[in-house]
């Protein structure tokens, strides 16, 4: 038990050191995942204790950058969860079609695979030219990979299968060029994408978006930080804008559970509740209570 207690203190101190020295705040991340990543780096680097790691982080920028990369969430795929993209085509695209311009925010875009997936989808739906996609991440290294759009060729088989399952209307091979062991995504897909550094923990509202996509990022945050981010998304969305989460993420246990309405069966796609509609709902509730009394 003592061991766990000290470890907990050491982790707090490590996170505090990272904040003071480099300005990145991981104190409100979910601790279990963070601890696993710290322990993994510990065993890979031959460092004996977390306290020793703290010393290393403070004195070795390269080591810090390695740890920063460990802490960012980099597991992603093109058309990950194909049925989500199918729902996007069927349930959201029709609502976006009549808008003069479409603003999409990919929060925590990591290495960009899902950004290119979105670009392909909007292109096939004839909406890409009036769209602007803001792809953000706090980690410059992964953002650079996003911008380049170069991925290992061995993943293309899975991506192609995902693309087909997601309701793709063309041939996936139209969107990239293969070279040796890599593929480069077609530059036309990047035309309306803005890649930017944004940290959900510390940065603020991001324009008036019609669609925010933030999938499998929030699972790494604690409740307090999740609440902050849901509020940030609420404030960044246009009226009746859409919020898309990962397949196991939910607003249900957050402070803003009443401010988003689930709209697609089996998918975590929400629509921002218009303020007036919400007021009307509260009124309805009150009348209902009165009626019952």
């Amino acid at each position: 038990m003592k061991k766990g207690e000290n470890e907990k203190i050491e982790i707090e101190l490590l996170l505090q050191a990272i904040l003071l020295k480099y300005g990145y705040d991981f104190r409100t991340y979910a601790k279990s995942s963070l601890k696993r990543r710290i322990m993994r780096r510990l065993s890979l680097s031959g460092i004996k204790t977390i306290s020793e790691m703290q010393h290393r982080v403070l004195n070795d920028v390269n080591f810090f950058e390695t740890l920063l990369l460990d802490f960012s969430i980099n597991v992603t795929q093109m058309f990950r969860d194909p049925f989500f993209y199918k729902a996007l085509r069927e349930d959201i695209v029709p609502a976006l079609r009549n808008q003069p311009a479409i603003k999409v925010w990919h929060a925590g875009c990591a290495t960009g695979e899902e950004v290119y997936s979105m670009a392909i989808l909007l292109k096939e739906e004839g909406l890409y030219n009036k769209s602007r996609i803001y792809a953000t991440d706090f980690n410059e290294k992964v953002l650079k990979i996003s911008k380049e759009g170069i991925y290992p060729i061995d993943r293309i088989k899975d991506y192609t299968r995902n693309y087909i399952q997601s309701g793709g209307r063309s041939s996936f091979a139209d969107y990239y060029r293969a070279r040796y062991d890599f593929v480069k995504m077609d530059s036309s897909l990047r035309k309306n994408v803005v890649f930017a550094d944004h940290n959900l923990v510390t940065d603020s509202v991001f324009g008036e978006m019609d669609l925010i996509v933030c999938r499998n990022v929030l699972i790494y945050f604690n409740r307090e930080l999740q609440n902050r981010v849901f509020k940030l998304f609420f404030d960044s969305l246009s009226d009746e804008g859409f919020l898309c989460l990962g397949s196991k993420e939910t607003v249900k246990y957050s402070d803003l559970s009443d401010d988003f309405k689930a709209i697609a069966k089996g998918q975590r796609i929400y629509r921002k509740e218009n303020h007036q509609t919400s007021k009307a709902r509260i009124r309805d509730k009150k009348t209902q209570v009165k009626d019952e009394v």
């Binding site: 979910a30 279990s32 995942s33 696993r36 990543r37 597991v75 699972i219 790494y220 196991k248």
Partner: peptide, 21 residues
């Protein structure tokens, strides 16, 4: 545990999920 996610328990006795390797 849901398929394809690690299931973890946090200090406040809530679940957290991860898609780590």
């Amino acid at each position: 545990a849901p398929a394809n996610y690690h299931l973890q328990i946090e200090e406040d006795r809530t679940f957290s999920l991860s898609i780590d390797e």
